[in-house]
């Protein structure tokens, strides 16, 4: 068995890849070394077998279609214009809805404390009847003035120091009584604000029409281009 350097040289010699001097050197060795000569002949025969292998023809055509390579039909510039207008109209439409719903959200957030305050008052009043001593001590302080409030203006003069404190409390209780209708009026305000939308419905309809119209035209252009392309 020859070393690999010899094998490599013989392989290159077969393909005519050696220089003239290298070829001459190898040829002189081939005549003097029969083993080397037989390696050359065997290798030539093996290469000959490979070269004689029947060339198989392609069983079908491998030609490509536009779909196979993902080619898209050339679209006119108007297509991108209509596509852009569809996108803009859609975004604006969404923004109008968002803008119109913002005041409602704002009112909903502001109304909540008022309602909770109102219910808290109701809880405080109701609680005095059922709960223990601390609540009971506070309850007369609020309820007593309201009971004595009606005769208060007439009995103002004899009512000395004890009345003066009750009179001092009376306006706060009165104010609370006056404020009580507020929760009833708040939903009315809210519904009024809801009715007065920031962006009128007409604009929303216009935007919707523009969006749908542009999308339809863009789709038609695309379909037409595809039909021409195929």
């Amino acid at each position: 068995m020859k070393n690999f350097r010899d094998i490599e040289q013989i392989s290159s010699y077969l393909d005519g890849q050696l220089s003239l001097s290298e070829s001459a050197q190898l040829e002189s060795r081939l005549t003097s070394d029969p083993e080397l000569g037989s390696v050359l002949k065997e290798m030539r025969a093996a290469r000959g077998l490979l070269r004689k292998m029947p060339a198989r023809r392609a069983p079908r055509n491998f030609t490509l279609t536009r779909k196979m390579v993902g080619l898209k039909p050339p679209l006119p510039q108007s297509y991108s214009f209509f596509r852009l207008s569809t996108a803009i109209a859609s975004v604006l439409l969404v923004l109008t809805f968002a803008a119109n719903s913002l005041p409602r959200i704002g009112m909903g957030g502001a109304a909540a404390p008022v309602q909770s305050f109102a219910t808290c008052n109701a809880c405080g009043g109701g609680g005095s009847d059922t709960t223990g001593a601390p609540a009971a001590t506070e309850a007369p302080a609020i309820q007593a003035p309201s009971m004595e409030l009606v005769p208060a203006p007439t009995q103002a003069e004899p009512g000395a120091s004890a009345d003066s404190t009750r009179i001092g409390e009376a306006p706060t209780a009165e104010a609370q009584l006056q404020k009580e209708p507020e929760p009833e009026s708040a939903p009315q305000d809210q519904s009024r604000v809801g009715a007065e939308a920031l962006i009128p419905l007409t604009w929303q309809i216009i935007l919707l029409v523009i969006g749908l119209g542009s999308a339809g035209i863009a789709f038609a252009i695309h379909q037409n281009a595809r039909k021409k392309w195929s």
């Binding site: 690999f4 094998i7 490599e8 013989i10 392989s11 290159s12 393909d15 890849q17 065997e42 290798m43 025969a45 093996a46 290469r47 000959g48 077998l49 490979l50």
Partner: peptide
């Protein structure tokens, strides 16, 4: 390439010896 080709041909030569009866007369 030269090296791989030489090695491949060497291995092929050895492998084809196993199919002697099928090989053409020259081989």
């Amino acid at each position: 390439i030269k090296s791989r080709l030489a090695r491949a041909r060497l291995r092929l030569r050895e492998c084809l010896r196993g199919f002697e009866e099928l090989l053409p007369s020259s081989f």
